[in-house]
Simulated scan of single mutants.
Amino acid sequence: MSSTASLTEKNVDRFAPVSLVSASAYIVTANPRVAAQNIRELIALARANPARLTFGSSGVGAASHLSAELFKAMAQVDMLHVPYKGTGQALTDLLAGQVDLLFAPSQTVLPHVKAGRLKALAVTGAKRAQTLPGVPTVAESGLPGYQAVGWFGLLAPAATPGSIVLKLSADVNSVLAQAEVRAKMTALGADPGGNTPEEFARFIREDQAKWAKLMREAGIEAAE
């Protein structure tokens, strides 16, 4: 899903996709008092205590919300959503034990995980994060097929000539291929992107369809 609120189903046609820049998995993070050390134990705990476990998010329809809703749907568990006005507030209450879980960007929670103030149960991407190689993915922990990543991409106004879009895409891909750039992005928990305008357009369509379907089925209306 887009890591910002700037691209939606309502306005996507106003832009010409140029290239995916990066994709970042989230970390399924728990307060230390939660009696689960991994995803299988979390699912068992949630099933034994319907609607008792709470998860924070940065707002209704945000990436941190939808990644947890996808988990709920696939694991067939009921957990209580507590929306906040930003990740910072959600993180503060997670650390204080006011909420149990947070599906959060790596750079937000990694220092607290390494300090032992939070537990990392899994990462939401298709592969393990280089910053937390010992933490498994949700998919390998009992929910095959689960994947939720936030992404950033470059788009141009829809009326931009195709030749310029192609030139921009080539330039972006050239930068993303540089070893130094890739190393810095990876250190921040982001997987470097890079693709053609056509590939990026297809990626956007598929990504939006996936999350729109989840929102319809879960009865979620994103905040305007």
Rank of each mutant, 00 (worst) to 15 (best):
1 M>R: 10
4 T>R: 08
4 T>H: 11
5 A>W: 10
5 A>P: 15
5 A>Q: 11
8 T>C: 02
11 N>G: 05
12 V>M: 02
17 P>E: 12
18 V>M: 06
20 L>P: 00
23 A>G: 08
24 S>N: 03
26 Y>R: 13
26 Y>E: 12
26 Y>M: 07
26 Y>Q: 15
27 I>V: 07
27 I>D: 02
31 N>P: 01
32 P>M: 00
32 P>I: 03
33 R>N: 15
34 V>R: 09
34 V>T: 12
35 A>K: 01
36 A>D: 05
36 A>G: 14
38 N>A: 14
39 I>D: 15
40 R>D: 12
40 R>N: 02
43 I>V: 06
43 I>H: 09
45 L>Y: 12
45 L>N: 02
52 R>K: 13
53 L>H: 01
53 L>R: 13
56 G>F: 05
57 S>C: 02
58 S>P: 02
60 V>I: 07
60 V>G: 11
61 G>L: 05
64 S>K: 06
64 S>E: 08
64 S>Y: 09
65 H>Y: 09
66 L>A: 15
69 E>A: 14
71 F>I: 04
72 K>H: 09
74 M>S: 11
74 M>C: 14
74 M>H: 03
74 M>Y: 10
74 M>I: 10
78 D>T: 13
78 D>F: 13
78 D>M: 11
79 M>A: 00
79 M>P: 10
81 H>R: 15
81 H>Y: 07
81 H>N: 14
83 P>W: 11
84 Y>P: 00
86 G>T: 01
87 T>G: 13
87 T>H: 09
90 A>S: 07
90 A>T: 01
91 L>V: 07
92 T>G: 04
98 Q>P: 11
103 F>E: 10
106 S>Q: 15
106 S>A: 14
109 V>T: 10
110 L>Y: 15
112 H>S: 03
114 K>W: 04
114 K>F: 15
114 K>E: 02
121 L>V: 05
124 T>Y: 00
128 R>I: 05
128 R>L: 04
129 A>Q: 10
135 V>C: 13
136 P>I: 04
138 V>D: 08
138 V>L: 00
138 V>M: 06
139 A>H: 04
139 A>M: 03
143 L>E: 15
145 G>N: 00
145 G>E: 07
146 Y>C: 08
150 G>Q: 00
150 G>A: 13
150 G>Y: 00
153 G>I: 07
153 G>T: 12
154 L>N: 12
157 P>K: 13
159 A>T: 01
163 S>F: 15
163 S>E: 10
166 L>R: 08
168 L>W: 14
169 S>L: 12
172 V>E: 11
172 V>R: 05
174 S>E: 10
174 S>T: 06
175 V>S: 13
176 L>T: 02
178 Q>S: 09
185 M>F: 07
185 M>V: 08
185 M>C: 03
185 M>H: 08
188 L>D: 01
188 L>S: 12
188 L>Q: 01
190 A>V: 10
190 A>Q: 08
191 D>N: 15
193 G>M: 03
193 G>S: 11
194 G>I: 12
194 G>F: 14
194 G>Q: 08
194 G>E: 14
195 N>A: 08
197 P>D: 09
198 E>H: 10
198 E>N: 01
201 A>C: 03
201 A>Y: 11
204 I>G: 03
204 I>R: 06
205 R>G: 05
206 E>Y: 05
208 Q>K: 04
210 K>R: 12
214 L>Q: 07
220 I>P: 09
221 E>H: 11
221 E>W: 08
223 A>E: 12
